[in-house]
Write a protein that binds this DNA or RNA. Structure first.
Lengths: 338, 338
DNA sequence: CTGTTAGCGCGTTCAG
DNA sequence: CTGAACGCGCTAACAG
């Protein structure tokens, strides 16, 4: 009955009035109660409960030096289970440090990324974690960010010297490819990301290195590096497998391409098309990979851990602040044979 | 050289000084430039660029009636691809309305949920979307939320009359179960969520209705309703399938249970254990379900759409504000036969 | 068209 | 131990 319909939140002043004390006493009570008489504290807390009072964190962070308690995180595709796990990892560590995350999806669009970052800064985030979307570094330079600490995950941005968490893309791809070569394959297809994407480049490099080392030529007819989603990957696999000399094995540089390729391979098996159907190596795990109709070797890593590591790097910088040089952490990957 | 190392953001006052105008002129320029001479606008914008100024959104939202532009969203498990997609759906619609989302993971823990909601309110969110974690509604009652609009997704909370987006859990489960009965199965196992979870209850009800309607008895020995993750689901499936009279088909009430059951079925097939191996119905889709070694019928729905719908309901209330009765939207599911 | 004043909710500083 | 005053960054409302 007393509350206006406008959903206005009660203020500390109203709490103080109801408790019959000054706003400062209420504030001190909420801050832990040091130097406040217990009976007054009790009255304040009662008023808080009665009014349903919550401290206004925004007003609080207005005060200079007060952190907002927010970490901004921008990722490229939340619908990809990998990035969901990644975000969870960041969220966990942030929660351990009493921070909240504020999240945006870039969809691999630089303009959107720029917009998100501005907004995050405008909300006074204590730090930023992002999976950068491309090579344009201008809006990410420290001075443009008001020197808010930034951690990059998964990918590096050329010319930007900041804390970064990466996977051992090259090593993983190399070892995965070697396992195919060891199994006797010499005609190996490659499915990957757009070349411009950092990880796509690195994973191709590992593949290339293994092939070159063993003296196996790479046939560009069975290299497709431009698929960003499952459907495109399916189509690319189809084209390859319809060739007169189809690959006997396929290296897929990420989760989306693996799913797409397997969908196509499954279709061919169901339709009774002649084999042999290709073995696969997949960079990125996916659930039930062990039940696939062709052997799948998985280059596995822990996206959640990647997120945790990124957050850890960020908090290290927030706490120490001792303008140390940018650090890069490269997380290992494990190869799981079929 | 001018910037103190403390990463303090430039203020509108500094912008105004540099441009040689008053803070109000700068403010008006940033607000769109109405009633500001073009040449002054240009000077302001130049100062903004030079200083790398961003409007302080927190200070902005301090002003009464000013929305914060934040939507709080709490989900139970970000690592579940379903909730990742759900969050993406919310994020998309929020972005269309110029809002940002602030996100927390409850891990099915009520205390954590309560804490998150407090924090969200404290940050002056314009609205809340949550996948509630259990039956305790006290901290979610409108007056406790300062009348910040709340939308529930996936689950309802008893005694809480707010906007809600649900799936057709009962109907979907019913139809999925019927498809098994039609195929001649009479010994059908059930894998599901903790009973307390709203969807677990509803999905069991659909299962039960179909069985009862066809006069097929439910054997509690092959009903397991307490698995929240893949490993637990695997174990439950194993126990069932090791019985003297194992089920010839399994109804799984969610993604996690489906993956767990299939993992166990796959293991048995690889280990050469005697069949016949059970057919499955899975509430929730998962990738590559068409490649499974046993027939899988999928009760499919679109988590991203669920998120979009929840956000749509929320913005409808934010815009109209005409204290209408709580609405419930029940999204259809589709059955995909193997 | 532009500038001044005032106040949003809170907590630091300084008096009582 | 308690309270009053001030200011954080910003923008309505009111002069000019």
């Amino acid at each position: 009955m007393s509350k206006p319909q406008g959903a206005r939140q009660p203020t500390i002043k109203e709490v103080a009035n109801l408790a019959g004390v000054s706003p400062m006493t209420a504030s001190r009570t909420l801050a832990g109660g040091r130097n406040v008489r217990p009976d007054l504290q009790e009255r304040v807390m009662a008023a808080v409960r009665e009014l349903g009072y919550f401290r206004n964190e925004n007003a609080r962070s207005l005060r200079p030096g007060q952190p907002s308690g927010l970490i901004g995180i921008a990722i490229t595709n939340l619908a990809n289970p990998y990035y969901g796990s990644f975000a969870l990892g960041v969220e966990e560590v942030a929660a351990e440090h009493g921070r909240r995350i504020i999240l945006g999806n870039t969809g691999e669009d630089v303009a959107r990324e720029r917009q998100l970052v501005s907004d995050f800064i405008g909300r006074q985030v204590d730090g930023l974690i992002l999976v950068p979307t491309s090579g344009d570094a201008a809006h990410l330079r420290p001075e443009r960010l008001g020197h808010v600490p930034l951690v990059l995950a998964s990918r590096r941005v050329p010319g930007l010297d900041v804390d970064t968490v990466l996977l051992d893309d090259v090593g993983g791809s190399y070892r995965g490819t070697i396992s195919l070569l060891d199994a006797g394959h010499t005609r190996i297809g490659f499915l990957g990301n757009r070349t411009s994407v950092f990880t796509g480049e690195r994973r191709y490099r590992g593949f290339e290195r293994a092939m070159t080392e063993r003296g196996v030529p790479i046939d560009t007819a069975i290299v497709a590096r431009d698929q960003q989603d499952v459907d495109a990957a399916s189509r690319a696999a189809r084209v390859m497998l319809d060739l007169d000399e189809p690959p006997t094995a396929i290296f897929s540089a990420n989760n989306r391409n693996s799913i797409g390729a397997l969908r196509e391979i499954g279709r061919r098996i169901r339709d009774g098309l002649p084999g042999p159907h290709p073995s696969m190596v997949s960079f990125d795990d996916f659930e039930l990979s062990e039940l696939m109709p062709v052997p799948v070797t998985v280059i596995d890593h822990d996206a959640r851990l990647l997120g945790r590591e990124a957050a850890t790097l960020l908090f290290a910088r927030l706490d120490d602040d001792t303008a140390e040089a940018a650090r890069t952490v490269e997380l290992p990957v494990t190869i799981e044979y079929p």
